[in-house]
């Protein structure tokens, strides 16, 4: 059995905010709309309610985020992905849905510190003053797609694994000491 590795092997940078590449996390894309059993199916795997539009429900290591009117992002420990997919397949059997393991297609970063928002402000066209607790914002980080939310005195940023190096470079550059906003 090969060991799962995150995109950048846990790279980190200490500037005016701390950047840490974390993971690997188990991530599942769940697409479904108007499916009756959906809230129960999600509750069974993340023990959260189905998030309202643009929200993320976090429960310890697990979470369910609203990505679009017919798409959710499930986060679970990496080792629990297969069991989670099996549970979803069982609860949603016969319902029109798609659940797929995207854990290895993603990279996850933590941006932490008092001025963590300043790091992201330079990269995304988002009004961070208006970002609510528990709000999942899909946007771009410079030239690539990213999703971000505030969590535990900082932000979690998710991007595609193929651009992990680019995003680490962006975050590192943006967090250079002396470049606070």
């Amino acid at each position: 059995m090969s060991e799962p590795v995150s995109a950048l092997g846990g790279a980190s940078f200490h500037g005016f905010a701390t950047i840490r590449e974390i993971g690997p996390l188990g991530m599942i894309t769940l697409r479904a709309k108007g499916v009756k059993a959906l809230d129960k199916a999600v509750k069974a795997v993340t023990d959260t309610k189905l998030p309202a539009p643009r929200r993320i429900e976090i429960n310890g290591e697990k979470a369910c985020g609203w990505m679009s009117p017919d798409e959710y992002l499930l986060i679970v420990p990496y080792a629990e992905v297969s069991a989670t997919l099996a549970s979803l397949a069982k609860s949603l059997a016969g319902e029109h849905h798609l659940a797929v393991d995207v854990s290895d297609a993603r990279a996850i970063f933590r941006v932490e510190g008092d001025k963590a928002a300043d790091v992201l402000r330079k990269l995304s066209p988002v009004d961070f003053e208006m970002l609510q607790p528990g709000e999942l914002r899909r946007t771009r980080a410079a030239q690539v797609a990213a999703a971000m939310w505030a969590q535990d005195a900082g932000f979690t940023v998710v991007c595609f694994r193929s651009v992990a190096g680019y995003v680490m470079g962006l975050l590192t550059h943006s967090a250079q000491p002396g470049s606070e906003l």
């Binding site: 539009p53 643009r54 009117p69 066209p125 914002r137 899909r138 946007t139 771009r140």
Partner: peptide, 11 residues
């Protein structure tokens, strides 16, 4: 109108 984000043109 689907997600309510006030999206800037580059998004």
């Amino acid at each position: 109108p689907y997600c309510g984000v006030k999206a800037e043109e580059t998004e």
